[in-house]
Amino acid sequence: MRGRWTGYWLILPAALWLGVFFVIPFYSLLATSLYDPEGSVLTGYDVTYHVANFVDAIEEFWRPLLRSLWYAGVATVICLVLGYVLAYAIAFKAGRWRTLLLVLVVAPFFTSFLIRTLSWKLILADDGFIVDALQTVHLMGDDDRLLATPVAVIAGLVYNFLPFMVLPLYASLEKIDHRLIEASSDLYASPSRGFWKVTLPLSMPGVVGGTLLTFIPAAGDYINAELLGSPNQRMVGNVIQELFTSTGDYAAAGALSVILMVIIVALVMVYIRKAGTEELV
């Protein structure tokens, strides 16, 4: 059983599946983005190396593209703050309740993403209690709304991707040797100095992993923008999926997908360089 080839045989089925249905599709997407834009579902498409698709896509859709990156960025920062507090509390303060609390972090996941988001629609609704409360204390005018604003969309993104932030943060906080933190206080560092100089730097792999796992899906998401926002909050995901499913403009949709992927890969690479952690896997 432990022959030279066993490893290959074991990995082969999964490798094939990922190769055919994950790697090759990227080439198909690239080909799609170079389609002749004159083609249609009926007449078929030709790969004419129509690079102008990219220029057209950026010219026409730069707003939703930038908006996606902006919303995802803001949501990621808020997630980082909330997620760090929660992960820190579980890792250092929860004692024997750790496992239970971790389960509770993942639990909301099991109610469908869409149902959770619709639930936020209800909570933020115009006659909901949050809007009522804010109007009573005049933080919001009588005609102001939360729904159909960037605030609602970002709140949805924060909520839906928070567990992706908490889990990697917890994983790296939990590994920290407590004696290091004690040592810093023995050397007369205040608790806050100890945090900034010891705990936070040691948890950087979790910070990098968590921010990536939050930012990337948030930038591609369109469910929150669709359910909680208005056409003014359209993100790039909304555009891509409309171009593919209703408009049938495959060339533009393909080009826009490729652009999104390239931007994300570029951002991730710069970010990992800056943050100085290359071992994520």
Partner: peptide
């Protein structure tokens, strides 16, 4: 991003 995997 799921949208990229899905469209690919």
């Amino acid at each position: 991003p799921e949208i990229v995997m899905g469209s690919s």
